[in-house]
Nucleic acid binder design. Structure first.
Length: 590
RNA sequence: GGACCGGUAGUUCAGCUGGUUAGAAUGCUUCCCUGUCACGGAAGAGGUCGCGGGUUCGAAUCCCGUCCGGUCCGCCA
């Protein structure tokens, strides 16, 4: 070993000891007669001291060193005359007796500090330098802790880690596959797994009973702050279980991780049906850190059954008379919003991404009077009636959207989150964990004019809804469940289909011919004929789980050592890139 | 496929209602400084204003196109 200690461990207890440290020059302070160097490694920072009076040559050498030089230094641990209470090693410094430059460094393109001056782009290009920064390094070290806690829990509960292949077969349904051309079978392709879904089910057929894997998955879809083309899942599956068993097991896993990594005892997860989530929060992944539930003022859509109290129609206000759904939220204490603020909010909801036609409001003034954007059509009593539906109090602001059901619900959901953020209600220290349950089995795809599996095609349906499969597929509920924390979908799971005829029926409902089903999924249909046990499971987005547990945020790139950018490019490698003509030829391309 | 924001010194940004030599901070270089810890002080170097075209007497600034980055919608079983 080139060193006897690390840069994070020496304290007042080590005074007088001769030590050798290695690390990077983080910063130096040249005072003329003496020079200080902050030496950094993974573990911390230790101050080196050079004095012109006692070690002239060493001191002169030290003054010439640049940032990020790699140094090896030997000296004596000594108590500082001026202590720094802000750092763990602040009571001591090394009086340097020997100094060796192990490697020089060019001046880095950005500062390697907790608050770097570098932009995202530069930091990605020089990711190996960015990873020297404490916040990013800590994220990765904490990620390791999360993985350890996960493995510990699963091992203790009898789960076996079994690896599954990456070079597999392209399947229809779901996300776009990344494909790999085969050299040995020219013109044919492997696909990289979107998840090990079918393999884990086959492992259940094999009798493994309890399986897990922390495994890379690949989806060739557009990216987001919380989506990478390759990402990591905690993939899990159990046999001989019912939905309740699976939920208990994995709720336990999440709690174990929060306890181990953050020292937090989470309370029992809340539960909510998909229908309620959509109705009250406008999304299938509600952020429950704040209330501000959506209140329906009129609902003539199929989900409202054409019934539901209607307190807004019949006032000669065409927009509201014509709307399928009218709903709103109550922003507490916002009645003082200025015209400008309301105009900004209106512009916000009218952006194409939100797509609302406009924004109605009712100010419940502090003096008890009501002022709305549609005063022309509504008298004070009618406004009062609406305000009551929101349980609004003086000082509150009611925001109202109207239009077609689906779009209006989504817009209300987005507006709710926006107001939550504006009002600082999305507390970074709060964790609201929720199971969303009873998802629909199918969703209608307007482009292809057919039903798609909402979760995936191996999800079983609720027995009591079986009669609806042929008559009203959209109303069939799945045995599917999601874990949602603070509005982030962390995981998704279901009880699977485990017999051939049901699986064939599912494929048929999805529009696959028996031939197609057999060509694409024959292996699993066959397996179901050899004693497949009832089984179910779940998969967690590990990157999101880490960003959530570690810093309660929804941005995963800083929790991945070498992430890709917005367009799926690796800025550091400059990939994807062209390949040699020779390689192409071997692969039968072009 | 679409919407919005951004691209100016090594870096982060200001300048943008067109007008003399494009600024600040930080980093970098040199010098001074014996208890600093974001050390301090002095001086200096550093620019294809992303790229192409247009409008104009004159463009970092206005217009069009294009490339790149970011956030989001669609998409993501």
């Amino acid at each position: 070993m080139l060193r006897t200690h690390t840069c994070g461990e020496l304290t007042i207890k080590n005074i007088g000891q001769p030590v050798t440290l290695c690390g990077w020059l983080a910063r130096s302070r040249d005072l003329g007669g003496m020079t200080f160097i902050d030496l950094r490694d993974r573990y911390g920072i230790t101050q080196l001291m050079f004095n012109m009076d006692t070690h002239k040559e060493l001191c002169e050498q030290a003054r010439k060193l640049g940032r990020e030089f790699v140094l090896k230094t030997t000296g004596k641990v000594s108590e500082r005359s001026n202590k720094n209470s802000k750092m763990p090693t602040g009571d001591i410094e090394i009086i340097v007796e020997k100094l060796e430059v192990l490697n020089e460094s060019k001046t880095p393109p950005f500062t390697i500090e907790d608050e770097s001056d570098g932009g995202d782009d530069l930091r990605m290009k020089y990711r190996y330098l960015d990873l020297r920064r404490t916040p990013v390094r800590n994220n990765l070290l904490q990620r390791h802790k999360v993985a350890q806690a996960v493995r510990e829990y699963f091992d203790a509960n009898g789960f076996a880690d079994v690896e599954t292949p990456f070079l597999i077969k392209s399947t229809p349904e779901g996300a776009r596959d990344f494909v790999v051309p085969s050299r040995l079978s020219p013109g044919e392709f492997y696909a990289l797994p979107q998840s090990p879904q079918t393999f884990k089910q086959l492992l259940m057929v094999s009798g493994f009973d309890r399986y897990y894997q922390i495994v890379r998955c690949f989806r060739d879809e557009d990216l987001r702050a919380d989506r990478q083309p390759e990402f990591t899942q905690i993939d899990c599956e159990m046999s001989f279980v019912e939905q309740e068993d699976v939920m208990n097991m994995f709720e336990g896993m999440v709690k174990h991780v929060f306890k181990k990594v953050r020292g937090l005892e989470l309370p029992a997860f809340k539960r909510m049906t998909y229908t309620d989530a959509m109705k009250y929060y406008g999304v299938d992944k509600p952020d429950l850190r704040f209330e501000m539930k959506i209140v329906e003022l009129k609902n003539l859509s199929p989900s409202g059954g054409g019934k539901g109290e209607d307190v807004v129609s019949g006032k000669n206000f065409k927009v509201y008379d014509d709307a399928e759904l009218i709903g709103g939220i109550c922003a507490k204490g916002c009645a003082e919003y200025t015209r400008k603020q309301l105009d900004e909010l209106t512009d916000w909801v009218k952006r194409p991404q939100i797509g609302a036609g406009g924004l109605g409001y009712i100010k419940f003034n502090a003096d008890g009077t009501l002022k709305s954007s549609f005063d022309k059509f509504f008298d004070e009593a009618s406004l009062k009636k609406i305000a009551e539906k929101f349980s609004a109090k003086p000082g509150d602001l009611i925001l109202i959207l109207a239009g077609a059901e689906e779009r209006t619900r989504k817009a209300l959901g987005a507006l709710r989150l926006e107001m939550g953020s504006k009002l600082g209600l999305r507390d970074k220290n709060k964790f609201e964990c929720l199971w969303v349950m009873d998802f629909p089995l199918f969703e209608w795809n307007e482009e292809e004019k057919r039903w798609f599996a909402m979760h995936h095609p191996f999800t079983s349906w609720k027995k009591e809804d079986e009669g609806l499969l042929n008559t009203n597929p959209g109303a069939v509920r799945a045995n599917a469940y999601d874990v949602v924390i603070n509005g982030v979908e962390l995981s998704s799971g279901s009880i699977r289909i485990h017999n051939r005829s049901q699986q064939e029926k599912m494929f048929k409902l999805l529009g696959l011919t028996p031939e197609e089903a057999n060509y694409k999924f024959g292996f699993i249909l066959n397996a179901f004929e050899y004693g497949a046990p009832p089984h179910g499971g779940i998969a967690f987005g590990f990157d999101r789980f880490c960003s959530m547990v570690i810093n309660n945020e929804d941005y995963i790139r800083d929790y991945i050592a070498f992430p890709k950018n917005n367009s799926g490019r690796d800025i550091m490698l400059d990939s994807p890139s062209d390949i040699d003509a020779k390689q192409k030829k071997e692969l039968g391309l072009k």
